[in-house]
Simulated scan of single mutants.
Amino acid sequence: MVGNLLLRGMLVGLFAGILAFGFAKIYGEPQVDRAIAFEEATAQAAGETPEPELVSRPTQAGFGLLTGVLVYATSIGGLFALVFAYTYGRVSSFGPRGTAALLALAGFVAIVLVPDLKYPANPPSVGNPDTIGSRTELFFIMLVISIAALTATIGLARRLWAQHGGWNASIIAGAAFVIVIAIAMYALPTINEVPEKFSADLLWRFRVASLGIHVVLWTVLGLGFGAIVERSFAGQLSRPASARPALR
């Protein structure tokens, strides 16, 4: 059964990746082109020689972007299915759709939103090439803290559920998550390497587009996977008990 869920998750992830690519192509790539134009103008004004282009811009914005998004989305879809197989029936009493939607929301918050609030995505020409290693390391530290905090939050909510009820347990655990994340964001260094004359409007639009790509991906993944699994489970329940495959 887990193998079937994995396959479904990867297929839904592939479909979500296609939609995310369309969003990136329409809303993200124009901002990248504007950032590249700013970078080239800055280099020209400084009398610097343009670096040779290893991969053409049309290839980057077309096949390269499509490949990257599809590989990422398919991988996320597979991992999503595995986590669903482990958490279904254990974390909450929700059905397949509710569990998938809740899992997608949690994944988006922990993997995308929280790290992005501290270290948001930057377009080309923003960021010092000499600090890319340290910036990447800080981003992954924030990512690990976010995922660990969410995992601990779920465990805390489950322990408090019986004593304080679902509503109070969720509030307490959610407050604990916010406190841990706030401390981590305060403790980790802030990075600001935006050029002085860089367009604030362009920076804002790029970051919104980057976040929007993930919103599309996780929304389609949560809703689509939940719908497919619910239909699959409904078919299994119609079979004799001895013919139903086990989830785990």
Rank of each mutant, 00 (worst) to 15 (best):
A149I: 08
T49F: 01
L143K: 08
G22L: 07
R90Q: 14
F63G: 10
G47Q: 06
A45W: 00
K118I: 09
T59Y: 10
T131G: 01
A46L: 14
P115T: 04
V71H: 03
S93L: 14
T136Y: 04
V91D: 07
P52E: 08
A100E: 12
Y86W: 10
L54W: 05
P124H: 01
D116V: 05
E51K: 14
G107H: 00
P120Y: 11
P52V: 08
G68F: 05
L138P: 01
P124D: 05
T151F: 10
R57M: 11
A152M: 14
L105C: 13
I145G: 03
R57P: 00
A45N: 12
I76W: 03
I111G: 02
E51W: 02
D116T: 15
I111V: 14
E53C: 00
R97I: 15
T131Y: 12
E40C: 00
P50G: 08
K25A: 15
E53Q: 15
T131L: 12
V71T: 09
L79H: 04
A24K: 00
I18G: 02
A46C: 04
E40N: 12
K118Y: 04
L138K: 00
G98A: 07
V83G: 03
I111E: 07
R57T: 09
Q44R: 15
A104L: 07
R97M: 15
I132E: 08
A46G: 01
I111T: 11
A61Q: 12
V69K: 02
P96K: 02
Y119A: 05
T42H: 13
E137A: 11
Y88A: 04
P96N: 13
A37D: 14
G133F: 10
Q44D: 13
V144N: 01
Y27M: 12
L113V: 04
F63E: 10
S146Q: 05
P115A: 06
N128E: 08
T99N: 13
A104Y: 11
G107Q: 07
K25E: 12
G64T: 10
T131M: 04
Y72L: 13
L54F: 08
A61Y: 09
V112L: 03
S75N: 03
G68R: 07
F63V: 15
F139K: 09
E137W: 07
Y72C: 03
S56R: 11
I76C: 08
A37H: 11
V71S: 07
I132D: 06
F63Q: 13
R97G: 01
I18R: 06
R34K: 15
F84H: 09
